Measured scan of single mutants.
Amino acid sequence: LRQRHVACLARSERGLGFSIAGGKGSTPYRAGDAGIFVSRIAEGGAAHRAGTLQVGDRVLSINGVDVTEARHDHAVSLLTAASPTIALLLEREAGGP
């Protein structure tokens, strides 16, 4: 079961505080899956403080732009754009009992 949710992050002077992996033109985060995933969350960064991202979340869109088939460098450029806030649509595998 997959759950979707939106995370809104305000960029700090240190950026957004998370890294992505995967996407076309880069090493897959999961074998056989060209999706883009949250690969790291920086301690004390914007994403960590927001508490809405988890490592392993699939990134579906960035500020309304679909990145499900995107190249890695395109997703990075969307994240590093000048916008002071970033809205992410994420998909998470629902774990637990």
Rank of each mutant, 00 (worst) to 15 (best):
E69S: 12
L88P: 01
V76E: 11
A87R: 15
D73G: 09
L9N: 02
V59M: 05
V55T: 07
E13M: 05
T52W: 08
E93Q: 10
D73N: 09
I62F: 02
H5F: 15
H74V: 14
L89D: 09
A21R: 09
G17L: 01
V59I: 12
V76L: 13
R4Y: 04
A42P: 08
S26G: 14
G35M: 04
R92A: 03
Q54W: 05
A70M: 07
A81Q: 15
P84I: 03
I86M: 09
A75N: 00
H74Y: 15
V6Q: 10
L16F: 13
D73S: 10
E91C: 03
N63I: 00
I36C: 00
C8Q: 15
L89C: 13
G45H: 07
S19T: 15
G64N: 12
I36M: 04
E69Q: 12
V55S: 03
A10C: 10
R30Q: 14
G96C: 12
D33I: 08
I20H: 00
C8P: 03
R2Q: 05
V38F: 02
G23D: 02
C8L: 15
V65H: 14
A10S: 12
A70D: 05
R92I: 02
V55A: 07
G56F: 00
C8E: 12
I41V: 11
R58G: 02
L9S: 01
G56K: 00
G23I: 02
A34L: 11
V65D: 05
G23Q: 01
S26T: 11
A82I: 08
A82L: 08
S77M: 11
Y29C: 06
A50Q: 09
A7H: 05
D73T: 09
T68L: 04
A7C: 11
R11S: 09
I41H: 00
G17Q: 06
A46G: 08
I20R: 01
R2T: 11
G22M: 03
G15N: 07
F18D: 01
R4S: 07
G23M: 01
V55R: 05
A47V: 08
R49P: 06
V76C: 10
A21N: 06
K24D: 06
L79Q: 02
G96S: 12
V76G: 04
S77N: 13
F37R: 03
R92S: 05
T52G: 09
P97K: 12
S61F: 07
A47S: 06
G25H: 06
G56P: 03
G35C: 05
L78K: 03
